[in-house]
């Protein structure tokens, strides 16, 4: 189980700080959700956690090792990333894409061996993608492609998986399937998981810890109950919301309110802001 330790990190692309003085500790095996309005620095934070970006100040430690000093392939053996939906113009098959997850373990001129194929098949079995292992990745539906990318991440045999807005292109059925799957991976494989998400309700339902970002700083962090409160959400996003409880699971649940919605009358809407 690998931890993530972010210490006083500052990052900017041009002249203003996108991430400002951010410190965070994610313990091994935890399941975190990162929420926050557009431009709050969620994706930037994620990119800092696997060394795609390097902070101008501060340090990120992965499993105790300083990210800036690690070799790329060593980082890739510990951290896998499931990217946001993006266009791919080259017709690699699903199996080829999943096998790419083995590349941190291969030398430059080395080919995948039978062990690598076994791991790829195992990862595809877990994500229910074996059925279309021979189909080109650019011909799959959004949900299928998403699962192939998760299989690739698993084939890396990482200890940490980062997800960047994984459900933004999925219908509700696939959204739930997706979270059920990563929940299982978190519990059974003890993977450390961090999900950047726009869907506060799903994050609050599945994640054990929530990080709410605003303007590149931590606005609030803690359990879903502590963070997903009308007060914090509406302050961070600048919109009226109603927060109550999911009657079946007890997780906090938000409902968006239109501007002219009536002020709260019912007792359970006392969380409204």
């Amino acid at each position: 189980m690998a931890s993530i330790d972010v210490r006083e990190v500052f990052f900017r692309y041009t002249d203003h700080w996108v991430i400002e003085d951010l410190s965070l500790r994610v313990e091994g095996g935890e399941f975190w959700g990162v929420i926050g309005p557009n431009g709050s620095g969620k994706t930037t934070l994620l990119r800092l956690l696997y060394g795609f970006l390097n902070p101008q100040r501060g340090t990120v430690f992965i499993d105790g090792g300083e990210l800036g000093r690690m070799k790329r392939s060593d980082i890739a053996k510990k951290v896998a990333v499931v990217p946001q939906e993006h266009q791919i113009n080259f017709p690699f098959t699903s199996l080829e894409v999943v096998l790419m997850g083995r590349s941190p373990y291969l030398g430059r001129l080395q080919f995948e061996n039978s062990g690598d194929f076994r791991i790829a098949e195992w990862a595809m079995g877990l994500t229910d993608t074996l059925r279309f292992s021979g189909r080109p990745i650019n011909e799959l539906s959004g949900g299928e492609r998403q699962r192939v990318f998760i299989a690739r991440a698993l084939a890396q045999e990482p200890q940490i998986i980062l997800f960047d807005e994984p459900t933004s292109n999925l219908d509700i059925n696939h959204q739930v399937e997706f979270y059920d799957l990563i929940n299982r991976l978190n519990l059974e494989k003890k993977l450390t998981i961090l999900v950047v998400s726009h869907d506060i309700n799903l994050a609050s339902e599945y994640c054990r810890k929530i990080l709410l970002l605003k303007g590149g700083r931590i606005f609030k962090m803690g359990s879903p109950r502590e963070v997903v409160a009308a007060e914090y959400i509406s302050q961070a996003y600048g919109s009226r919301v109603l927060v109550d409880e999911n009657p079946l699971t007890g997780s906090p649940r938000i409902t968006l309110l239109r501007k002219d919605a009536p002020e709260g009358e019912k007792p359970e809407t006392k969380g409204e802001w």
Binding site: R47, Y50, G51, F52, K71, R72, S73, D74, I75, A76, K77, V79, A80, V81, P83, H86, I88, N89, F90, F92, E96, V97, M100, G101, S103, P104, L106, R108, L109, Q156
Partner: peptide
């Protein structure tokens, strides 16, 4: 000698980086 790196590269720069490519 960079052939496998190109495979990762066409999947996107971020993907290539996260799979260990410089």
């Amino acid at each position: 000698s960079y052939a496998r790196g190109f495979n990762l590269m066409v999947m996107g720069e971020e993907t290539a980086v996260q799979l260990g490519v410089d």
